[in-house]
């Protein structure tokens, strides 16, 4: 391991720097709350103990109906959503839902640290003491027994285990043919089209600074980043956390501060409970979106490095290969070793 200061003066200094960084993140969140304008504030309907959902979205009126229903059925009681300058029906769709509180901002996604400043603010303001689920619009959370046990059962289990956060692996799902093929209507189950995934090519390492894992791989690494694997998307996330106002997400939901929250994995050889985020990015429409994102350059710190990624995506590739696996359910994911029940029977 390069440097993982744990004790002595070096360790104290390291801890102090992380503490400063966390405060800086919280400061940014406080500062950028002014960019948010409440469109529909129904946060008075939040009851103690409710599980809350947080999201920052842009032009997602196709994915949102199913996504919201999926997580509402799991037991998310209220969604707190930031609409970042959508131009489609997203805002109307969200404002009409009784369990959604909506904010709008025209600010730059990139300069708000890819929306995390805004989300951190909402978490700080409304998330304290709740189990909070922070997702993207193209992610569907699944976990062991999710069809028969609601999120409250999961968080109750995590509480009893002393686990304050749940890790989840992003699994890129893709269609059988070209990514533009097929039709998807709002409200449809995206898994009807996106049935395939890569089951065993995930690269795992620990990032010593904050003790979080760094998992890359899957279809995107295989197809788009084979020649520059370091740039392949990070797939490990920590979407579900029992929030405290002093916590902060560092980059997307991959890592948190304070660093102890990143310990969603067992180091003693055992396994903790973990879930998966089914990634519905490759729905029809992805090509237009990729072309647009390339121009907007709001998604990566160093956009030019990802130009070829967008270009190859725009070329309408086939992601499925002979080694692809067809998704059948969480038990399959567990058998493959992508998620785990841990000790949860």
């Amino acid at each position: 391991m390069p440097d993982r200061p744990q004790s002595g003066a070096k360790g104290l200094w390291h801890a102090y720097r992380l503490r400063m960084r966390r405060r800086w993140l919280l400061g940014r969140a406080l500062h950028r709350r002014r960019q948010l304008v409440a469109v529909a504030d129904r946060t008075d309907r939040i009851a103690p103990g409710d599980i809350l959902g947080f999201m920052c979205v842009r032009n997602e009126d196709a994915r949102l109906p199913f996504m919201l229903d999926h997580h509402r059925n799991l037991g998310v009681r209220h969604f707190l959503i930031i609409d970042n300058a959508s131009t489609d029906g997203t805002a109307d769709l969200l404002a009409a839902r009784p369990d959604v509180s909506l904010w709008r901002t025209e600010g730059s996604y990139k300069s708000a640290r890819f929306g995390m400043d805004w989300v951190n603010w909402l978490l700080m303001r409304y998330g304290h003491g709740h189990w909070c689920l922070t997702l993207d619009a193209d992610e569907l959370l699944v976990y062991p027994h999710w069809q028969t046990r609601c999120l409250a059962a999961l968080t109750d289990w995590l509480d009893r285990q002393g686990q304050v956060a749940l890790g989840a692996l992003t699994i890129d799902l893709y269609p059988a043919g070209r990514v533009s093929e097929g039709t998807y209507a709002p409200g449809d189950d995206p898994l009807g089209i996106l049935r395939w995934f890569d089951s065993g090519n995930y690269q795992v390492q620990v990032q010593p600074r904050m003790g979080n894992l760094w998992i890359q791989g899957g279809a995107r690494a295989r197809v788009f980043f084979a020649s520059q694997p370091r740039r392949a998307p990070t797939l490990n996330k920590i979407p579900l956390v029992r929030w405290h106002w002093r916590y902060a997400y560092v980059n997307s939901t991959h890592a948190l501060l304070p660093p102890r929250l990143n310990r969603v994995y067992a180091t003693d050889g055992g396994m903790l409970t973990s879930g998966a985020l089914l990634h519905t990015k490759f729905l029809p429409g992805i090509i237009e979106r990729a072309a647009e994102e390339k121009v907007r350059a709001e998604h990566f710190a160093d956009g030019a490095q990802y130009a070829s990624y967008y270009d190859r995506l725009t070329a309408d590739p086939v992601l499925r290969c002979a080694a692809s696996t067809r998704l059948t359910g969480w038990r399959q994911l567990e058998a493959l070793g992508l998620i785990s029940r841990g000790g949860w029977v």
Binding site: V264, Y265, A266, G269, G270, G342, G343
Partner: peptide, 14 residues
Amino acid sequence: RRTRGRQGLFMQSR
């Protein structure tokens, strides 16, 4: 499973 895990598996919670 909780204490011994699955030998040879390196993943998000092991």
